[in-house]
Design a protein around this nucleic acid. Structure first.
Lengths: 191, 191
DNA sequence: AAAAAATCTTAATCAAGATTAAGAAATACT
DNA sequence: AGTATTTCTTAATCTTGATTAAGATTTTTT
């Protein structure tokens, strides 16, 4: 199995080599070229994906036909459209690579089998979901409390390396602001 | 055990009467008077709570000294400050009853023991976290895509009964707007 | 190297919603 | 019942960030 995923799993549960091999047998490696889609609006999302290398964005098209980015996934993140996966309804999201990306696919039917064969899978994903939810709540907090400008600076200083990896207009979208406004903020800062 | 919690658990996992009794033995009933606090800023959050009756709000004090409500919990919801609970750091939140409220407390140490004695507890909470996360993402989507006015109407029409249970200024806070603006929206609607 | 596509910047105008400051109405308390 | 507290409303002014419309710069493709 991918060494990063092993390390990631071991951070949260005790797992033997045999169990790692079992887990791994349910995973399918995939690669995506930059701009390739993992999922498009209308499709059923049927898998969870662990990104081993690269960058993925999840976005939807809003009522003004703008791409609204919900979040990114990078190396060592699990991503999926939970709403489509869990509720088995067509996705409203696009999941697209913003770089050439390598990931491990865990199909939901494999996930369910794995949960039976290796019950600690439940624990592992329970903990991941808690972490994911905490991150999502923190983000909501920032969106409530910070001005656009503060939000931008906070994001850039918290993710300096990542900010270099994606175009500025995508960061603007993630933060819920226009690219023009981001330009304005950056121009102010430089004085 | 509380019949609502039994029904709630059975919705997601198969569970026998013996197991229900085991689960129940780890729960401690609590009551809160209106305006009483379950948690205050600076305290360690050590439990998860299942609300059987009443209403709870989770809020923090922002940098302008305003109460910013993150969300409410009502009958048949699990609530806690996950950040404090999981990361074992002092809470930034206030958790307060907005009505006389009854809940079942599951202390984190009990939770951990329960996960060992009854492993399907992991599955149950994994599924709850997924549902909770989906709700949080939907909310983010609405906040990105709707104007304040749309957000307010959407909330009221989706939660007509709840809107009667809490003061308007709390709904304003939940939606990230001022009470004055909510008054304005309501005045417009009435024409 | 040239052309095309993608990304970023600037600046003027506009609008959504915040702020401020009363005052009115409703609820709770004695 | 009367007072105090909480909640809600109105309206004027102000601010943040969106919109619009170019044009400049960078990156990719041929």
């Amino acid at each position: 199995m991918n060494p990063n995923l092993i390390e990631y799993i071991k951070r949260y549960v005790n797992i033997s080599q045999t169990e790692i091999d079992l887990f791994n047998s349910y995973l399918k490696p995939r690669t995506l070229k930059k701009k390739e889609f993992l999922l498009k609006e209308g499709q059923l999302c049927k898998s969870r994906y662990f990104i081993t290398k690269g960058c993925i964005r999840l976005y939807y098209i809003d009522n003004k036909a703008n791409e609204q980015i919900l979040h990114f996934g990078i190396d060592n993140w699990w991503i999926t459209d939970y709403e489509s996966l869990i509720n088995k309804i067509p996705s409203k999201l696009y999941i697209q690579a913003t770089e050439n990306t390598e990931l491990l696919e865990l199909a939901q039917e494999n996930f369910e089998e794995l949960c039976i064969e290796l019950p600690k899978t439940e624990r592992f994903f329970r903990i991941i979901m808690e972490k994911t939810y905490i991150a999502s709540q923190k983000r909501l907090e920032y969106m409530f409390s910070l001005t656009g400008e503060e939000l931008y600076h906070k994001f850039i200083s918290s993710n300096p390396e990542f900010a270099q990896r994606v175009p500025q207009y995508m960061i603007a979208s993630l933060l819920g602001m226009t690219p023009e406004f981001v330009s304005k903020i950056r121009a102010n800062k430089k004085q």
